[in-house]
Write a protein that binds this DNA or RNA. Structure first.
Lengths: 142, 142
DNA sequence: TCCAATTATGGACTGAGTCAATAATTGGTT
DNA sequence: AACCAATTATTGACTCAGTCCATAATTGGA
């Protein structure tokens, strides 16, 4: 199954199995995240409003937070940017442009997390290696 | 030379060679960053105030920003945390605790940046691979 | 159908950081 | 040594992203 294209009922089931209730707001927020990956909270809020008509800013934040905590979506926060959300929850990385703040996905060569091993774990129980490649995107290189 | 223990005159010289003026505020901010690595802006502000007596919050932010831009210090921003600053500017990584927000340095096995190569660079000119290992620190494992 | 628990709404509020106008410093020049 | 243009510091208002909280509405199991 293509994890990056969850159907409505898949999302519904995922919410339930995480012990969350299924609401129109949550489904719509998930759809918005799916439609525009790497979008920020207020962009998602706008998208959902075009869809549902009305939703409170708080409901969007709640949905994004609980769905992130339950692994339905993933939150990314590159330095200097507000939080962004994506529906891809497999282990992949990101490529960020220092100039235009654009962000794109990069597949992880290894697959399952953590894909890198630290030289020494200093006693930490490491579960994820978050990698962000920083550079200049093709458009900004002119 | 141990890059992690710049003397006052080294800092002074580094500021000059970056085209920046040498001021008491900047030297004090650098000292504060050196003294408590991974500190946040307001902590640095406090430390500098114990040192100089008075400094404006804005002067602290200015010093931190310009020194970061000129490579004298490094800014790190783990998700969910305000910006932190460190005087180590060599290529190393970080280990963050999901519970207590503690952050420690991890040496990079490779050395010079970028220490990782992306599977595909998508036309980006990559200059850095930022790696944050996420896990639970020894103290929080109880 | 009912009801307890969960979720949404609306509005005030916080924290981190920036903006912009004015005052003070710095460091090269005569 | 004094001057002066450019840089830097101060002050206070302001923005942006996000949280808190009390109340109202919805959900889904009994």
């Amino acid at each position: 199954m293509d994890k990056s294209h969850q159907s409505q009922s898949d999302v519904s089931a995922a919410l339930k199995s995480a012990g969350m209730q299924v609401t129109a707001q949550r489904l719509a927020v998930y759809r918005a995240v799916q439609t525009s990956p790497h979008a920020m909270a207020d962009e998602i809020c706008q998208t959902v409003r075009e869809d549902l008509g009305v939703i409170s800013r708080q409901a969007v934040y709640d949905a994004l937070n609980t769905m992130s905590e339950n692994g339905l979506i993933r939150r990314i926060q590159p330095a200097g940017s507000p939080a962004r959300y994506e529906h891809r929850v497999d282990n992949h990385h990101h490529l960020a442009c220092r100039k235009c703040e654009s962000l794109i996905d990069i597949d992880c060569a290894v697959g399952e997390a953590p894909c890198l091993t630290a030289k020494s774990d200093h006693g930490y129980l490491i579960d994820e290696a978050e990698v962000i490649y920083w550079g200049i995107c093709p458009a900004c290189q002119q």
